[in-house]
Amino acid sequence: MTADTATDLFEESRPVLTGVAYRMLGRIADAEDVVQEAWLRWSSAGREDVREPRAFLVRITTRLAIDRLRHLQSRREAYVGPWLPEPVVTEFGPSVPDTAEQAVLADSVSLAVLVVLESLSPLERAVFVLREAFGFPYAEIAVTLDRTEAAVRQLAGRAKRHVEERKPRYDVDPAVRRDLTERFLSAASGGDFEKLLDLLAPDVRLVSDSGGKSKAPRRIIETADKVSRFLFAVGRDMSVEMEARIVELNGGPAVALFIDGNVDTVFQLDVEEGFIQCVYIVRNPDKLSGLSVNWAAARG
């Protein structure tokens, strides 16, 4: 295998490798570091005996992601306030032409699912991502994790039950979710307290991630009354320099607040039975800088 062929094979696999690493780690920078390390190992390895390059690369990436996740978990225990995954722009495009497959990929990258994955062990998370998000066979996952197929099936069953018990229980029509997001933005930015309250489930939760680097609640806020009062205050304090847009992040609509072209805040909503069940707010600038760069590049 020539160096050019090896490079081409790696670049063809890069979207899958990045997708696996991001779902494992919840941050693009960490995912890209893992993929870069996988490239270094691939470029320096003896590739003559590699019969299935994509499977080999997924194996390397997954093992590196597990190692990094174990390291990151100790750091996250000292994180200031709740920890949320980094929001990402999700465009599945022509490489994923099937609508059903797009839906699976979008669901597996949603904030609600990624938050639940945080409570899994690194091995459970790896099995869930490889099996549920990317459809890898149990036998291939067993080789990747150096486990028996029976052990992998057991891990997969446990991880899937855990996720199903904790993620939103109902499939939401994308049009309904977008409509609720638009109404949420209108009510919050327009200072309409009653309309905002009407959108929220009685037991709604608000989870905000600032990492201690921006102003945001460091505890989860619960109940419609408390959440609506907080959001009402946020809407009232929005400056005239701030621009709000509906954008597509993590497989669904979100509200992004921009100041001078840079993303200041992201809101995403969990929706069930026509009501908002959870409001996720990301304000940690380290998790928003990538979005600012993306949209600046898109504008040329």
Rank of each mutant, 00 (worst) to 15 (best):
P122Y: 13
E32P: 10
R23S: 02
V129I: 10
L288V: 09
T181W: 06
A151Q: 15
F184T: 09
I28Y: 12
A112H: 14
V207L: 02
V263T: 08
R14V: 12
E32C: 09
R158H: 12
K226S: 04
S74H: 11
T99N: 08
S208A: 15
R51G: 11
F136G: 11
D237M: 12
G261D: 03
R63W: 08
T2F: 11
R54V: 13
A256W: 04
M238G: 06
R14A: 15
L130G: 03
V282S: 09
K213P: 05
I281P: 01
V266S: 08
I60K: 03
L200P: 08
P174M: 05
R131P: 06
L72Y: 04
G191R: 13
S44C: 06
A45E: 13
R41M: 13
S74M: 11
Y138P: 09
E91Q: 14
L64N: 11
V104P: 10
P82G: 01
S214I: 11
A159F: 11
S208V: 00
A201D: 05
F193Y: 11
D260G: 12
E243N: 10
D286C: 02
M238C: 06
G251P: 05
T99F: 12
V152D: 03
G19W: 02
S43H: 11
R27L: 02
P87Q: 04
G26K: 07
A244F: 11
M242A: 14
A31V: 11
G46D: 15
V80E: 01
A45N: 09
V58Y: 07
A254P: 01
V20C: 04
I221K: 02
T18Y: 04
E101P: 07
V34S: 09
E194V: 12
E124L: 08
A150V: 03
N294G: 06
A112I: 05
A175P: 04
S95T: 04
I259K: 12
V143M: 14
D203R: 02
P137L: 08
E124R: 03
L145T: 13
A55W: 09
A175R: 15
V255A: 02
L180W: 01
T2C: 10
Q268N: 00
R14G: 06
L9I: 02
R125A: 15
G46M: 08
R166S: 00
E86M: 03
E194Q: 08
A159P: 10
E101C: 09
A65Q: 07
S43P: 05
D146C: 09
R178K: 15
V255E: 00
L40H: 12
S210E: 02
A100D: 14
D237R: 15
G135T: 02
V129C: 09
A133I: 07
R219F: 13
D203K: 01
V80F: 13
Q268S: 02
V227L: 04
A224Q: 08
V163P: 00
A244M: 11
V163D: 00
L206C: 06
R245D: 04
A150D: 14
P82I: 00
A150I: 03
P85H: 01
A151Y: 09
E194F: 07
Y280A: 00
R47F: 08
S119K: 10
S74Q: 14
A126G: 11
R27N: 10
D173R: 05
R166T: 00
E101W: 14
V96K: 07
D67T: 14
L72E: 12
L72H: 01
S43K: 12
A159I: 10
W83P: 09
R169K: 13
V89M: 12
R51W: 04
P53G: 05
V172C: 01
D198R: 13
D198Q: 13
F92W: 11
